[in-house]
Amino acid sequence: MIKIAKYVLLDILRNRFVILYTFFLFLVTLSMFSLEGNSDKAILSLLNIILMVVPLVSIIFTTIHFFNSYEFIELLLSQPINRKAIFLSEFSAVSIALCLAYVIGVGVPVTLFSQGMDTVYLIISGMLLTLVFVALAFCASVLTRDKAKGIGVSLLFWFYFTLIYDGFVLYVIYAFNDYPLDKVTLALVSLNPVDLARIIILLKLDISALMGYTGAFYKQFFGSSMGIIYSFVFLLIWAALPLSISLRKFLKKDI
């Protein structure tokens, strides 16, 4: 399994796209910090990019990669190799490549400029988001037959988590405004990895005071060590769930 993963990883790195992605992240991070004097503000601006770009690139790249290496997978399947091993090595290779790109592109420059807990959270949650969207991409790819459809479903996932879901949340808040909604929204946040990552980082920056009562409530929850564990575990579940679904599907799929 490690052998296959290593081979796939090398293949991805030869592809240059990941290097370009790393370079892009690096450039954006550097420019954010040189534009904004205040490191808190820079992290805030960076947050917007991370919440949009990282999921999008992760999910699209993974989908395209999966369909491009379809023939290679077919070839491997003709060999006496466990299907599970092939699938997991594909997954781990892609995740490692993208996580590495993220750590080098964002993590390294950010730690150069600011060394606080917020930086640690930014890096960890960005990596977890990468994992989540790679897993979702595998899900989309396994569930569909051809590349166009696969990319379509991936894009739909991305739209859903960055935009549609928030719209739905806003509607819920609007409709049930007369009721105490703090606990409900807390549950709703947990059901979207992008929201979860965003709120963890926002609360680490010293701006939760702006968020009024809700902010104080969230801070109490996410500020405790239980809350931190809760949120990271939830992000991991968000990666594990689509992965196990796609794995199950892949094991039975007629390729």
Binding site: L163, D166, L170, T214, G215
Partner: peptide, 20 residues
């Protein structure tokens, strides 16, 4: 304005939706 009317919606602060 949304936040002023529905304080809970502050949880969407800095999301893509709010930007749009």
């Amino acid at each position: 304005m949304i936040v002023e009317k529905m304080p809970t919606s502050v949880m969407l602060w800095r999301s893509f939706l709010v930007f749009l």
